[in-house]
Design a protein around this nucleic acid. Structure first.
Lengths: 186, 186
DNA sequence: ATTACTAAACCGTCTAGTTGGTATAGTAAT
DNA sequence: ATTACTATACCAACTAGACGGTTTAGTAAT
């Protein structure tokens, strides 16, 4: 609950979550175990379970952080497109496409949760539905918005599953194409 | 290996694969076990292992059937768009979007393989790359084709993960929008 | 005889979760 | 300044059950 304020040593919570994401990306969601996670972080199983009382809690935390990061990124893009009539749509799309190379494993949490306990996705579903309503409201062509939304997430998931390496190089071009399609709508 | 040709009783191979897909969809890839599969199909573990010598073989078969079904569907659509200049693109997209309500769990195999053993996705990656080359070759605007390709697969995966229920109702409208966008390119 | 199984026991390994204990650092009264 | 206490952040060892897979023995249709 407290990363900096409290007494004692600094928390490894985020270190653990990072390692969990990487593990899912490289080995598959089924091999995300406390043992493997312990090896990856050099933290004992007991230590891990101190931070996340159960595996479901860990998955929950992964999803939560993923949504939070996405939300923050969207807000950042909102400022970039301040005077654009398609500010909302563009921000949502670019946030999800997430041009930042640094956090590549955006969908690890999603896939891990889906694999281990699909019920954990409920809050995620709510978040998606909210985004859809937002698209419906702020877009001149909601159906186009939906297509582009799915395109971004399709690309992200395909990358995560390593079904294509369109990654770095084409990413910029892909993003530009999306923005152009938004601006070209008449 | 033989569903109809061989002697003896008809094989339960496809029954097992169907059940496996449904299990993944409803319970998550991590809960696809021989025990659970045996319960779902009323086939003993011995029986299951008679058909699929290992779990990897089972996952392999799931992927294989998925690709084959997709391929067949694409061929069917190719006939529907015989004189269309965008025959290839349209067929690929509609095949993957897969309007058939009957086989809803198209991506179960994908998610199960990704969760349990990502290395099994290698042939799938090859298939995707081949599709990309095909898109590059037969499309006037390859980047648009890519966007629409990812849109279709994004929608499919979101549906599979139950992140949205855009399913039946909007599916037709979604498909129509895709086709319109293809035809509108200048 | 071959194909397609069933039923049940069994094995080694893996896994989530428990227990009980330790170390570090800050708080606060004396 | 020392003592006592609290909270955080762990670790090592263990347990019960699940899982993949094997084996054995038998059945029943073609």
């Amino acid at each position: 609950m407290c990363a900096k304020k409290c007494a004692g040593r600094p928390s490894n919570r985020d270190v653990i979550l990072d390692a969990a994401e990487q593990l899912v990306a490289s080995e598959g969601a089924a091999r995300l175990t406390f043992d493997a996670l312990g090896q990856a972080t050099s933290i004992s199983k007991g230590g891990l379970l101190y931070h996340f009382a159960s595996k479901d809690k860990l998955l929950e935390a992964m999803l939560e952080r993923m949504v939070a990061r996405n939300s923050d990124l969207k807000d950042a893009f909102m400022k970039d497109f301040e005077d654009d009539p398609n500010q909302e749509l563009k921000s949502i799309l670019l946030a999800s496409l997430n041009s930042d190379a640094e956090c590549a494993q955006l969908s690890s949490g999603l896939l891990a949760a889906a694999a281990n306990n699909p019920e954990l996705l409920a809050p995620m579903t709510a978040h998606v539905q909210q985004t859809f309503q937002s698209l419906e409201q702020f877009s001149r062509d909601p159906m186009l918005a939906k297509v582009l939304f799915f395109a971004v997430h399709g690309a992200r998931l395909f990358e995560q599953l390593q079904l294509c390496e369109h990654c770095q190089g084409d990413r910029k071009a892909f993003a530009d194409k999306l923005l152009a399609m938004i601006d070209q709508q008449n």
